[in-house]
Design a protein around this nucleic acid. Structure first.
Lengths: 182, 182
DNA sequence: ACCCTAGCTGACCGATCGGCCAGTTCTGAC
DNA sequence: GTCAGAACTGGCCGATCGGTCAGCTAGGGT
């Protein structure tokens, strides 16, 4: 039964998006997508020029909006710009959650290894330590932000000697948690 | 010239670590490592049981220390625990920078795509907006933390409705930047 | 009734990659 | 000098993956 109007294309995008978010781009084969969407691998490449093109179509809207946000910010200044940047990033990240997950999925696959402690368990206990006994759900979000912020910011290139970077990471994290930084 | 004592093994680890950090685990082949280390692919598998075993050996020390940190935190409580958790994570992340880069490298490879705006440029401009004109290097670190925190925390699972999560992400980010949260 | 075409497919291809093995070379111990 | 064994290698294998292609089929336009 070939002629299902244009639903196949949409089904493929939906399957690919879900699988990419769950197993990562490289961790998902064309066959995986085809099986999930209920068609043949060749059919994928009839509707899309390549595996990469599927990912492109999934990420393009987020990219467009990010560029728009950037433009909007260029017109603002000072406190106004800072608040707009935060609000814009929050909005974007939440509305394109699946896309964010696609981008960071490979990290999950890499981090869940026997020689590393279970990342979920560690996360839970670190957040516990950060937020104290019986934390509110809100406090747990801040705990997450502080941990992720420390972890990933450490890997970036910063114009700061190691000792100073160490101090600033600590200060930023404590502030995220709403604690005194002295 | 076979018998270089045990330097080959160390050379392989060094090469693998550098390449994994630069191109990611999956993006680095055994041949890449062999060429860089100046030996044959078969030699890698003489010194290590598998490609995965190389990564394991590179990550194991970080995993051990993370487990130790967790243990140490279990004995503490309240403000003391929070500060020890932050200090411990900062220390770990900075001392194992290369390992952190290995874990997140695949994200870099995935995020630098034509349909997405150039991530470095966007990062720069967002940090500009967050920190205002002529920011200090310290302020840029906080800007980084806030952005990364928003971005990655949004992808996690939180026991919070979307609207509340949105508010808390905003609040946390503004606090990281040392701004009023009202 | 006929045919054109969009939708779809099975079979196949070339490339790459992780891993294996038989065999060679060098070294240190005796 | 001899020899055991560690260090190392070229060549090969099976699996997987992205992608191609010739061809089948169902339906709508005429």
């Amino acid at each position: 039964m070939p002629h299902a109007p244009a639903t196949m294309r949409a089904d493929i995008l939906e399957s690919a998006g879900r699988l990419f978010a769950a197993r990562g781009f490289r961790g998902t084969s064309l066959q995986d997508i085809a099986s999930d969407a209920g068609c043949s691998k060749a059919s994928l490449l009839y509707h899309f020029t390549s595996k990469d093109a599927i990912l492109t179509e999934l990420l393009a809207p987020a990219g467009r909006e990010l560029a728009e946000l950037e433009e909007r910010l260029a017109a603002l200044d000072g406190e106004e710009a800072a608040r707009a940047a935060v609000a814009g990033l929050v909005d974007l990240s939440l509305r394109f959650r699946r896309q964010v997950k696609i981008l960071i999925q490979d990290v999950d696959a890499l981090i869940n290894r026997p020689e590393l402690p279970d990342v979920n368990a560690v996360t839970e206990r670190l957040v516990d330590a950060l937020t104290g006994r019986s934390p509110t759900p809100e406090a747990r979000v801040w705990g997450w932000m502080a941990m992720v912020g420390i972890f990933l910011t450490s890997a970036g290139e910063h114009a700061l000697p190691d000792q100073a970077l160490r101090a600033e990471l600590t200060r930023g994290a404590l502030r995220t948690l709403g604690r005194r930084t002295d």
